[in-house]
Design a protein around this nucleic acid. Structure first.
Lengths: 203, 203, 203, 203
DNA sequence: CATGAATGAGGGTTCATTCAT
DNA sequence: TATGAATGAACCCTCATTCAT
């Protein structure tokens, strides 16, 4: 996969875009024929590029992670206190939620190297933000990066029977309440977390 | 469905139990043969009792709603302030989360009468709890029953690649933060909700 | 498979007959759809009865062995000296050669119990005939049962590009020369055989 | 095919070698991709050199015939009586049997000119050997060149489930008995042959 | 009523063949 | 000329559904 011929590269992009849409609309079990049709390529091309469903899911997942990490970087670059950063991250994520396939913690995709690399970058950045938040008294101390990843995955998960706007509104409201819940005032400690770092993947 | 023969009734229960388990393990698209096998009945029997997938999903959904409503009633009966009631409801729900198929707002199941009846009962009870919460200054004013239903559905959704305990821990932590976010102090207003009552269903 | 329903049994026979024909016409890689069509059953029925190609090949093989054993028994029952018995066996086999799927020595089917049982019966019967032949000076001493099985398999193998009569004539002529070669007069010893009993299967 | 560029010629040889191996290992229906891969050329190159499967089979067949003819010539050159010649021919053939794709009588390849030319040369040479054999009383009179070609094809056919040595041993033993059967002493006449010259081809 | 056999539509996958690079 | 990407027909197999026992 070092360098792909120009047309092959274009096809790869079209397939990934189609898969992302259809995964969200109908789940990751969607028919390969349909993905190929929407991408405008032959079924054989899809199989040449992605020999099995797992590899397609993997690559869509990687893209989701990359978007998430980009949102995080952008939010931090925009400045503001730690809470403002978190709000901005989630605003961006919810905004794109139906172009995103946000991995949940755990699953086979975890074994992929690129996925792990992205995961680590995200965990590190979030840990930093949370650390700042704690230092400035804006964020409760018992919340960790995996809680935030879980929350992001939850509000990104498809709600197949709702119109896009309704789903987005519900996700935004849920997010707002959750973020408000991150503030320390009067908080009782959270239940223990186990070791969430053992898992990270798509739904 | 007025009165079923004793053995027929037993079969119905076995099928529903098997479906509930398999829906959670592998999704609602699971093969009917497998449901029949796990239930220990013939495939013909399954079809006699549930002529199509929709009707099976519907009945499992109804059971989920009934559990939710029961949890709600039990929590209210246990007494305590409104916030204590909500905490107790969610504690019960998370506890049973992998025996529950919790419907999200919206979807075809909405057209069923029994489902609507349960939905209304749940909405009414939640509205009452929230009303009390507002009156006592424990709960922010801009949260409605559908936000809570959404939250409950979210934390109940399957996380197929995680061991039960890990999923339950994540759900409990998420719930705790969310509930803490329901308190009014320092809250900024939520984004608008549209009309969520137009939808109610399973994932 | 203890007792099959009457119609299921009939279908099984039709499938086996179709498979036998098509295996001979086009090889064991023939399309399952075609087998089902020729048998006059649905593809699903074929799969229910024979979950994979191996099991279908196995059962056709068993039938081939059974025919071979039957030919052997009939020939021995018909009486005559050992050489007359062998001639009669091969005459019968060549006669039915295009209804037969004659296993060659070696292959995965060997692991099947029924196949091994038939193999042993055939080997024993042939060993007896050869023993008699040796005793009466009609058959050379260095030929064993596996040589005869090999010869039978060879003359039964399909010759796809020849009309049935031409194939049968060539097989009959080859057989006649081979059997003539079994007589001891002037024979030089055969090359060593290794351990042929380690193998037995279809082509 | 007048004169091929040096590298093109090399490619042609590599493809033929790969095809010969794979035909024997997995049959003539083997995937073209696999042949190209084993030959170390692109699939396009394979198609440029052999526009269809038939032409590839034809050329492998021609090579088989050429080897057979060479074995025949070498055996005759080695001298000895007619029977010694036949024994030497078959010894050589069996020895190389798993590098040989030996055509059976009949089939589409027959229409190729080079194939017919080789066939005629082989038939003529065998006829001569048999004629000598008859004259010297070493070979029965009712055997013709096509019987020998059939025998050679039979003992060369792949036995996919047997290790090379086992297959070779069985073939050598079968050949020895068959050749012994060619001697006239006490022979009963063979069944009639039809007109075998109407057919000649690969399995 | 319960059972499980039969059916065939549809989705998964391979591979022969063409064609752009 | 060599390459390998793209294509789609054809085969494999599962499974929802019907129906005979």
């Amino acid at each position: 996969m070092t360098t792909l011929r120009a047309d092959a590269r274009r096809n790869r992009e079209k397939i990934l875009a189609a898969a992302r849409e259809l995964f969200r609309e109908r789940g990751t079990a969607v028919a390969f024929d349909d993905i190929a049709r929407r991408a405008g390529v032959g079924i054989g091309t899809l199989y040449r590029r992605f020999p099995d469903r797992e590899s397609l899911i993997r690559d869509v997942t990687v893209e989701g992670f990359e978007s998430g990490l980009a949102a995080l970087d952008a939010a931090r670059a925009a400045g503001g206190g730690p809470m403002a950063v978190l709000e901005e991250v989630f605003r961006r994520i919810v905004e794109q939620r139906d172009h995103l396939v946000m991995p949940l913690i755990g699953g086979p995709v975890l074994h992929d190297e690129r996925v792990q690399e992205l995961q680590r970058a995200i965990v590190d950045a979030l840990a930093q933000v949370l650390e700042d938040g704690r230092a400035q008294g804006e964020v409760r101390a018992d919340v960790g990066p995996f809680d935030l990843i879980t929350a992001a995955a939850m509000v990104c998960r498809p709600m197949p029977h709702l119109p896009k706007e309704a789903a987005q509104a519900l996700a935004a409201r849920h997010t707002a309440v959750y973020l408000h819940g991150l503030r320390p005032a009067g908080a009782r400690p959270l239940p223990p977390a186990g070791d969430p770092s053992a898992h990270l993947a798509m739904d």
